[in-house]
Write a protein that binds this DNA or RNA. Structure first.
Lengths: 189, 189
DNA sequence: GTCTATACGAAGATAGAC
DNA sequence: GTCTATCTTCGTATAGAC
Protein backbone atom coordinates (compact mmCIF):
# COMPACT_ATOMS: atom_id res chain seq x y z
CA UNK A 1 0.00 0.00 0.00
CA UNK A 2 0.98 3.61 0.22
CA UNK A 3 2.74 5.52 2.92
CA UNK A 4 1.49 6.40 6.33
CA UNK A 5 0.44 9.95 5.61
CA UNK A 6 -1.26 9.01 2.36
CA UNK A 7 -3.42 6.47 4.14
CA UNK A 8 -4.18 9.00 6.81
CA UNK A 9 -5.28 11.54 4.21
CA UNK A 10 -7.68 9.02 2.69
CA UNK A 11 -9.17 8.23 6.08
CA UNK A 12 -9.60 11.91 6.88
CA UNK A 13 -11.16 12.55 3.49
CA UNK A 14 -13.74 9.85 4.22
CA UNK A 15 -14.63 11.47 7.52
CA UNK A 16 -14.86 14.94 5.98
CA UNK A 17 -16.74 13.83 2.86
CA UNK A 18 -19.46 12.19 4.88
CA UNK A 19 -20.11 15.46 6.69
CA UNK A 20 -19.45 18.17 4.12
CA UNK A 21 -19.48 16.34 0.81
CA UNK A 22 -16.85 16.28 -1.91
CA UNK A 23 -16.89 19.88 -3.16
CA UNK A 24 -17.38 21.09 0.38
CA UNK A 25 -14.10 19.54 1.46
CA UNK A 26 -10.84 21.15 0.42
CA UNK A 27 -7.29 19.86 0.52
CA UNK A 28 -6.79 22.37 3.27
CA UNK A 29 -9.30 20.57 5.48
CA UNK A 30 -7.85 17.17 4.67
CA UNK A 31 -4.34 18.31 5.59
CA UNK A 32 -5.48 19.85 8.84
CA UNK A 33 -7.62 16.88 9.85
CA UNK A 34 -5.04 14.25 8.97
CA UNK A 35 -1.98 16.09 10.20
CA UNK A 36 -0.27 15.12 6.95
CA UNK A 37 2.34 17.48 5.51
CA UNK A 38 1.11 19.99 2.95
CA UNK A 39 3.91 19.43 0.54
CA UNK A 40 3.10 15.79 -0.02
CA UNK A 41 -0.35 16.19 -1.51
CA UNK A 42 0.61 16.01 -5.15
CA UNK A 43 3.33 13.55 -4.43
CA UNK A 44 0.77 11.07 -3.15
CA UNK A 45 -2.06 12.12 -5.43
CA UNK A 46 -0.64 13.29 -8.75
CA UNK A 47 -4.16 13.26 -10.15
CA UNK A 48 -5.17 15.91 -7.64
CA UNK A 49 -8.44 16.01 -5.78
CA UNK A 50 -10.19 13.62 -8.15
CA UNK A 51 -7.63 10.93 -7.38
CA UNK A 52 -8.04 11.50 -3.65
CA UNK A 53 -11.80 11.14 -4.08
CA UNK A 54 -11.48 7.93 -6.07
CA UNK A 55 -9.22 6.36 -3.49
CA UNK A 56 -11.40 7.54 -0.67
CA UNK A 57 -14.48 5.96 -2.20
CA UNK A 58 -12.57 2.71 -2.74
CA UNK A 59 -11.37 2.77 0.84
CA UNK A 60 -14.79 3.51 2.32
CA UNK A 61 -16.43 1.05 -0.05
CA UNK A 62 -14.25 -1.86 0.94
CA UNK A 63 -14.35 -0.88 4.60
CA UNK A 64 -18.15 -0.99 4.68
CA UNK A 65 -18.17 -4.06 2.45
CA UNK A 66 -15.91 -5.81 4.93
CA UNK A 67 -18.33 -4.95 7.74
CA UNK A 68 -21.14 -6.62 5.83
CA UNK A 69 -19.09 -9.71 5.08
CA UNK A 70 -17.95 -9.97 8.67
CA UNK A 71 -21.54 -9.74 9.90
CA UNK A 72 -22.64 -12.26 7.30
CA UNK A 73 -20.26 -14.93 8.56
CA UNK A 74 -22.19 -15.72 11.70
CA UNK A 75 -25.77 -14.82 11.01
CA UNK A 76 -28.83 -15.09 8.83
CA UNK A 77 -29.78 -12.17 6.56
CA UNK A 78 -32.10 -10.63 9.12
CA UNK A 79 -29.31 -10.56 11.68
CA UNK A 80 -26.95 -8.97 9.17
CA UNK A 81 -29.56 -6.34 8.45
CA UNK A 82 -30.12 -5.55 12.10
CA UNK A 83 -26.41 -5.22 12.73
CA UNK A 84 -25.93 -3.06 9.66
CA UNK A 85 -28.79 -0.79 10.72
CA UNK A 86 -27.28 -0.59 14.19
CA UNK A 87 -23.94 0.40 12.70
CA UNK A 88 -25.49 3.33 10.83
CA UNK A 89 -27.55 4.31 13.83
CA UNK A 90 -24.42 4.56 15.92
CA UNK A 91 -22.72 6.74 13.33
CA UNK A 92 -25.71 9.06 13.08
CA UNK A 93 -26.16 9.46 16.82
CA UNK A 94 -22.44 9.64 17.50
CA UNK A 95 -22.07 12.54 15.08
CA UNK A 96 -25.25 14.32 16.19
CA UNK A 97 -26.65 13.56 12.72
CA UNK A 98 -23.84 15.31 10.93
CA UNK A 99 -22.24 12.27 9.33
CA UNK A 100 -23.69 10.15 6.55
CA UNK A 101 -22.26 7.83 3.93
CA UNK A 102 -19.12 9.09 2.17
CA UNK A 103 -19.86 7.02 -0.93
CA UNK A 104 -23.30 8.58 -1.30
CA UNK A 105 -21.83 12.02 -0.70
CA UNK A 106 -19.40 11.60 -3.56
CA UNK A 107 -21.92 9.84 -5.80
CA UNK A 108 -24.40 12.73 -5.77
CA UNK A 109 -21.72 15.27 -6.70
CA UNK A 110 -19.58 13.43 -9.22
CA UNK A 111 -21.18 14.19 -12.53
CA UNK A 112 -18.19 14.59 -14.77
CA UNK A 113 -15.43 12.28 -13.59
CA UNK A 114 -15.74 8.73 -14.87
CA UNK A 115 -13.23 7.22 -12.45
CA UNK A 116 -15.04 8.60 -9.43
CA UNK A 117 -18.43 7.51 -10.69
CA UNK A 118 -17.09 4.02 -11.42
CA UNK A 119 -15.67 3.74 -7.91
CA UNK A 120 -19.02 4.63 -6.34
CA UNK A 121 -20.80 2.12 -8.56
CA UNK A 122 -18.41 -0.64 -7.59
CA UNK A 123 -18.81 0.09 -3.90
CA UNK A 124 -22.57 -0.32 -4.10
CA UNK A 125 -22.20 -3.48 -6.18
CA UNK A 126 -19.84 -4.97 -3.59
CA UNK A 127 -22.23 -4.44 -0.74
CA UNK A 128 -25.11 -5.80 -2.78
CA UNK A 129 -23.17 -8.95 -3.66
CA UNK A 130 -22.26 -9.61 -0.03
CA UNK A 131 -25.86 -9.24 1.10
CA UNK A 132 -27.28 -11.25 -1.79
CA UNK A 133 -25.07 -14.23 -1.01
CA UNK A 134 -26.45 -14.49 2.52
CA UNK A 135 -29.97 -14.32 1.14
CA UNK A 136 -29.27 -17.13 -1.27
CA UNK A 137 -27.77 -19.22 1.50
CA UNK A 138 -30.97 -18.89 3.46
CA UNK A 139 -33.29 -20.00 0.68
CA UNK A 140 -34.01 -17.09 -1.62
CA UNK A 141 -33.80 -17.60 -5.36
CA UNK A 142 -30.76 -15.93 -6.94
CA UNK A 143 -32.84 -13.31 -8.76
CA UNK A 144 -34.88 -12.45 -5.72
CA UNK A 145 -31.80 -12.41 -3.51
CA UNK A 146 -30.20 -9.84 -5.76
CA UNK A 147 -33.29 -7.63 -5.86
CA UNK A 148 -33.86 -7.74 -2.13
CA UNK A 149 -30.19 -6.99 -1.52
CA UNK A 150 -30.50 -3.95 -3.77
CA UNK A 151 -33.62 -2.92 -1.89
CA UNK A 152 -31.81 -3.18 1.45
CA UNK A 153 -28.81 -1.13 0.36
CA UNK A 154 -30.93 1.50 -1.36
CA UNK A 155 -33.41 1.80 1.50
CA UNK A 156 -30.76 2.03 4.21
CA UNK A 157 -28.74 4.61 2.29
CA UNK A 158 -31.87 6.61 1.64
CA UNK A 159 -32.92 6.32 5.26
CA UNK A 160 -29.55 7.61 6.44
CA UNK A 161 -30.08 10.73 4.36
CA UNK A 162 -33.57 11.16 5.78
CA UNK A 163 -32.28 10.68 9.33
CA UNK A 164 -29.80 13.50 8.91
CA UNK A 165 -32.49 15.73 7.44
CA UNK A 166 -34.95 15.03 10.23
CA UNK A 167 -32.35 14.69 12.95
CA UNK A 168 -33.89 11.42 14.05
CA UNK A 169 -33.14 7.73 13.72
CA UNK A 170 -36.81 6.99 13.16
CA UNK A 171 -36.60 6.61 9.36
CA UNK A 172 -33.75 4.12 9.71
CA UNK A 173 -35.56 2.10 12.36
CA UNK A 174 -38.80 2.05 10.37
CA UNK A 175 -36.98 1.02 7.23
CA UNK A 176 -35.09 -1.70 9.10
CA UNK A 177 -38.32 -3.13 10.42
CA UNK A 178 -39.97 -3.25 7.01
CA UNK A 179 -36.87 -4.68 5.37
CA UNK A 180 -36.97 -7.59 7.79
CA UNK A 181 -40.39 -8.43 6.42
CA UNK A 182 -39.08 -8.28 2.89
CA UNK A 183 -36.19 -10.57 3.78
CA UNK A 184 -38.53 -13.02 5.42
CA UNK A 185 -40.80 -13.04 2.39
CA UNK A 186 -37.83 -13.66 0.09
CA UNK A 187 -36.72 -16.67 2.08
CA UNK A 188 -40.01 -18.50 1.83
CA UNK A 189 -41.58 -17.11 -1.32
CA UNK B 1 -43.75 34.52 -4.25
CA UNK B 2 -41.22 36.99 -5.52
CA UNK B 3 -40.19 38.33 -8.85
CA UNK B 4 -39.66 36.60 -12.13
CA UNK B 5 -35.89 36.40 -11.98
CA UNK B 6 -35.89 35.23 -8.38
CA UNK B 7 -38.15 32.33 -9.26
CA UNK B 8 -35.98 31.55 -12.22
CA UNK B 9 -32.86 31.48 -10.05
CA UNK B 10 -34.50 28.99 -7.71
CA UNK B 11 -35.48 26.75 -10.59
CA UNK B 12 -31.98 26.88 -12.03
CA UNK B 13 -30.47 26.15 -8.64
CA UNK B 14 -32.61 23.02 -8.40
CA UNK B 15 -31.37 21.83 -11.79
CA UNK B 16 -27.75 22.56 -10.94
CA UNK B 17 -27.88 21.16 -7.40
CA UNK B 18 -29.19 17.83 -8.61
CA UNK B 19 -26.17 17.47 -10.90
CA UNK B 20 -23.32 19.15 -9.04
CA UNK B 21 -24.56 19.41 -5.48
CA UNK B 22 -24.75 22.45 -3.25
CA UNK B 23 -21.08 23.33 -2.75
CA UNK B 24 -20.37 22.42 -6.35
CA UNK B 25 -22.76 25.07 -7.60
CA UNK B 26 -21.76 28.72 -7.42
CA UNK B 27 -23.84 31.86 -7.82
CA UNK B 28 -21.97 32.28 -11.05
CA UNK B 29 -23.49 29.08 -12.42
CA UNK B 30 -26.95 29.97 -11.22
CA UNK B 31 -26.78 33.39 -12.86
CA UNK B 32 -25.58 31.95 -16.13
CA UNK B 33 -28.11 29.16 -16.19
CA UNK B 34 -31.06 31.29 -15.23
CA UNK B 35 -30.20 34.35 -17.25
CA UNK B 36 -30.97 36.44 -14.19
CA UNK B 37 -29.09 39.69 -13.67
CA UNK B 38 -25.95 39.49 -11.51
CA UNK B 39 -26.75 42.55 -9.47
CA UNK B 40 -29.96 41.19 -8.07
CA UNK B 41 -28.59 38.22 -6.17
CA UNK B 42 -28.39 39.84 -2.76
CA UNK B 43 -31.48 41.84 -3.40
CA UNK B 44 -33.51 38.64 -3.76
CA UNK B 45 -31.48 36.56 -1.32
CA UNK B 46 -30.16 38.80 1.46
CA UNK B 47 -29.16 35.66 3.34
CA UNK B 48 -26.81 34.72 0.51
CA UNK B 49 -26.28 31.23 -0.77
CA UNK B 50 -27.79 29.56 2.28
CA UNK B 51 -31.05 31.36 1.64
CA UNK B 52 -31.02 30.34 -2.00
CA UNK B 53 -30.46 26.73 -0.92
CA UNK B 54 -33.30 26.82 1.58
CA UNK B 55 -35.73 28.20 -0.97
CA UNK B 56 -34.55 25.77 -3.60
CA UNK B 57 -35.15 22.81 -1.31
CA UNK B 58 -38.60 24.15 -0.45
CA UNK B 59 -39.40 24.62 -4.13
CA UNK B 60 -38.15 21.17 -5.16
CA UNK B 61 -39.78 19.59 -2.13
CA UNK B 62 -43.22 20.96 -2.85
CA UNK B 63 -42.83 20.32 -6.57
CA UNK B 64 -42.12 16.63 -6.03
CA UNK B 65 -44.72 16.47 -3.27
CA UNK B 66 -47.29 17.83 -5.69
CA UNK B 67 -46.37 15.12 -8.19
CA UNK B 68 -47.06 12.46 -5.57
CA UNK B 69 -50.37 14.00 -4.57
CA UNK B 70 -51.45 14.33 -8.17
CA UNK B 71 -50.63 10.69 -8.84
CA UNK B 72 -52.38 9.68 -5.65
CA UNK B 73 -55.67 11.20 -6.72
CA UNK B 74 -56.52 8.60 -9.29
CA UNK B 75 -54.75 5.46 -8.25
CA UNK B 76 -53.98 2.89 -5.61
CA UNK B 77 -50.60 2.98 -3.83
CA UNK B 78 -49.00 0.54 -6.26
CA UNK B 79 -49.97 2.73 -9.19
CA UNK B 80 -48.57 5.78 -7.43
CA UNK B 81 -45.33 3.92 -6.83
CA UNK B 82 -45.05 2.84 -10.45
CA UNK B 83 -45.64 6.34 -11.70
CA UNK B 84 -43.18 7.79 -9.23
CA UNK B 85 -40.54 5.27 -10.24
CA UNK B 86 -41.22 6.07 -13.87
CA UNK B 87 -40.76 9.76 -13.15
CA UNK B 88 -37.30 9.20 -11.68
CA UNK B 89 -36.38 6.83 -14.45
CA UNK B 90 -37.18 9.47 -17.01
CA UNK B 91 -35.04 12.02 -15.20
CA UNK B 92 -32.09 9.63 -14.95
CA UNK B 93 -32.22 8.54 -18.57
CA UNK B 94 -32.97 12.01 -19.84
CA UNK B 95 -29.88 13.39 -18.14
CA UNK B 96 -27.63 10.45 -19.04
CA UNK B 97 -27.52 9.64 -15.32
CA UNK B 98 -26.16 13.02 -14.37
CA UNK B 99 -29.20 14.31 -12.49
CA UNK B 100 -30.47 13.04 -9.16
CA UNK B 101 -32.61 14.50 -6.40
CA UNK B 102 -31.81 18.10 -5.43
CA UNK B 103 -33.15 17.61 -1.91
CA UNK B 104 -30.84 14.66 -1.31
CA UNK B 105 -27.94 16.60 -2.79
CA UNK B 106 -28.42 19.42 -0.33
CA UNK B 107 -29.20 17.11 2.58
CA UNK B 108 -25.89 15.26 2.38
CA UNK B 109 -23.88 18.49 2.34
CA UNK B 110 -25.72 20.69 4.81
CA UNK B 111 -24.09 19.97 8.13
CA UNK B 112 -24.01 23.35 9.75
CA UNK B 113 -27.05 25.31 8.62
CA UNK B 114 -30.19 24.60 10.61
CA UNK B 115 -32.58 26.26 8.17
CA UNK B 116 -31.33 24.19 5.26
CA UNK B 117 -31.43 20.96 7.23
CA UNK B 118 -34.96 21.73 8.41
CA UNK B 119 -36.11 22.37 4.84
CA UNK B 120 -34.78 19.00 3.67
CA UNK B 121 -36.44 17.25 6.59
CA UNK B 122 -39.78 18.85 5.81
CA UNK B 123 -39.58 17.87 2.17
CA UNK B 124 -39.11 14.21 3.01
CA UNK B 125 -41.89 14.39 5.61
CA UNK B 126 -44.26 15.88 3.02
CA UNK B 127 -43.67 13.10 0.53
CA UNK B 128 -44.03 10.48 3.22
CA UNK B 129 -47.35 11.93 4.38
CA UNK B 130 -48.76 11.97 0.87
CA UNK B 131 -47.79 8.36 0.25
CA UNK B 132 -48.95 7.18 3.68
CA UNK B 133 -52.42 8.60 3.14
CA UNK B 134 -52.94 6.53 0.00
CA UNK B 135 -51.77 3.44 1.86
CA UNK B 136 -54.26 4.06 4.64
CA UNK B 137 -57.04 4.57 2.13
CA UNK B 138 -56.34 1.16 0.69
CA UNK B 139 -56.46 -0.73 3.94
CA UNK B 140 -53.12 -0.44 5.72
CA UNK B 141 -53.06 0.43 9.40
CA UNK B 142 -51.89 3.97 10.14
CA UNK B 143 -48.62 2.81 11.71
CA UNK B 144 -47.82 0.41 8.92
CA UNK B 145 -48.79 2.95 6.27
CA UNK B 146 -46.34 5.41 7.71
CA UNK B 147 -43.51 2.88 7.87
CA UNK B 148 -44.07 1.58 4.35
CA UNK B 149 -44.26 5.13 3.03
CA UNK B 150 -40.90 5.85 4.66
CA UNK B 151 -39.51 2.68 3.13
CA UNK B 152 -40.69 3.72 -0.33
CA UNK B 153 -39.21 7.21 -0.15
CA UNK B 154 -35.93 6.00 1.33
CA UNK B 155 -35.54 3.11 -1.10
CA UNK B 156 -36.34 5.17 -4.18
CA UNK B 157 -34.01 7.98 -3.15
CA UNK B 158 -31.27 5.47 -2.42
CA UNK B 159 -31.90 3.70 -5.70
CA UNK B 160 -31.59 6.96 -7.63
CA UNK B 161 -28.13 7.46 -6.14
CA UNK B 162 -27.19 3.89 -7.06
CA UNK B 163 -28.48 4.34 -10.60
CA UNK B 164 -26.25 7.35 -11.12
CA UNK B 165 -23.28 5.47 -9.72
CA UNK B 166 -23.85 2.42 -11.89
CA UNK B 167 -25.19 4.32 -14.87
CA UNK B 168 -28.16 2.01 -15.07
CA UNK B 169 -31.83 2.11 -14.14
CA UNK B 170 -31.66 -1.46 -12.86
CA UNK B 171 -31.46 -0.58 -9.15
CA UNK B 172 -34.53 1.63 -9.45
CA UNK B 173 -36.50 -1.02 -11.34
CA UNK B 174 -35.52 -3.76 -8.88
CA UNK B 175 -36.42 -1.59 -5.94
CA UNK B 176 -39.75 -0.66 -7.52
CA UNK B 177 -40.63 -4.30 -8.01
CA UNK B 178 -39.85 -5.23 -4.42
CA UNK B 179 -41.64 -2.19 -3.04
CA UNK B 180 -44.79 -3.31 -4.80
CA UNK B 181 -44.64 -6.50 -2.77
CA UNK B 182 -44.21 -4.50 0.42
CA UNK B 183 -47.21 -2.35 -0.46
CA UNK B 184 -49.32 -5.38 -1.20
CA UNK B 185 -48.34 -6.97 2.10
CA UNK B 186 -49.22 -3.79 3.98
CA UNK B 187 -52.70 -3.65 2.44
CA UNK B 188 -53.72 -7.11 3.59
CA UNK B 189 -51.58 -7.74 6.67
C1' DG C 1 9.01 12.91 0.79
C1' DT C 2 8.45 17.20 2.29
C1' DC C 3 9.21 22.15 2.21
C1' DT C 4 8.06 27.23 0.79
C1' DA C 5 6.42 30.23 -2.33
C1' DT C 6 3.34 31.39 -5.62
C1' DA C 7 0.23 31.42 -9.62
C1' DC C 8 -4.38 32.05 -11.01
C1' DG C 9 -9.07 31.70 -10.94
C1' DA C 10 -13.27 31.45 -8.42
C1' DA C 11 -15.73 31.69 -4.29
C1' DG C 12 -19.19 34.52 -1.41
C1' DA C 13 -20.18 39.00 -0.12
C1' DT C 14 -20.51 44.31 0.11
C1' DA C 15 -20.70 49.30 -1.43
C1' DG C 16 -22.47 52.76 -3.89
C1' DA C 17 -24.17 54.53 -8.40
C1' DC C 18 -28.18 54.56 -11.34
C1' DG D 1 -34.10 46.13 -9.22
C1' DT D 2 -30.09 46.11 -11.40
C1' DC D 3 -25.44 47.71 -12.41
C1' DT D 4 -20.20 47.77 -11.79
C1' DA D 5 -16.44 47.58 -9.03
C1' DT D 6 -14.11 45.72 -5.39
C1' DC D 7 -12.78 43.12 -1.06
C1' DT D 8 -11.21 39.01 1.01
C1' DT D 9 -10.79 34.43 1.36
C1' DC D 10 -10.31 30.23 -0.54
C1' DG D 11 -9.88 26.80 -4.19
C1' DT D 12 -6.63 23.62 -6.92
C1' DA D 13 -2.35 23.26 -8.81
C1' DT D 14 2.70 24.05 -9.93
C1' DA D 15 7.81 25.15 -9.44
C1' DG D 16 11.87 24.47 -7.48
C1' DA D 17 14.73 24.01 -3.19
C1' DC D 18 16.10 20.70 0.28
Amino acid sequence: MGSESKQQMVKSAAVLFRERGYSGTGFRDVIEHSGAPRGSIYHHFPGGKAELATETVRYAGSYIGAQIERLAQDGDPAAVLRAFVGWWRKLLEGSDFRAGCPVVAVAVEAHDDDAIVAATGEAFADWERALASTLRRSGATPARARRVATLCIAAIEGAVVMCRAQRSTQPLLDVGRELEQAIEAAQSG
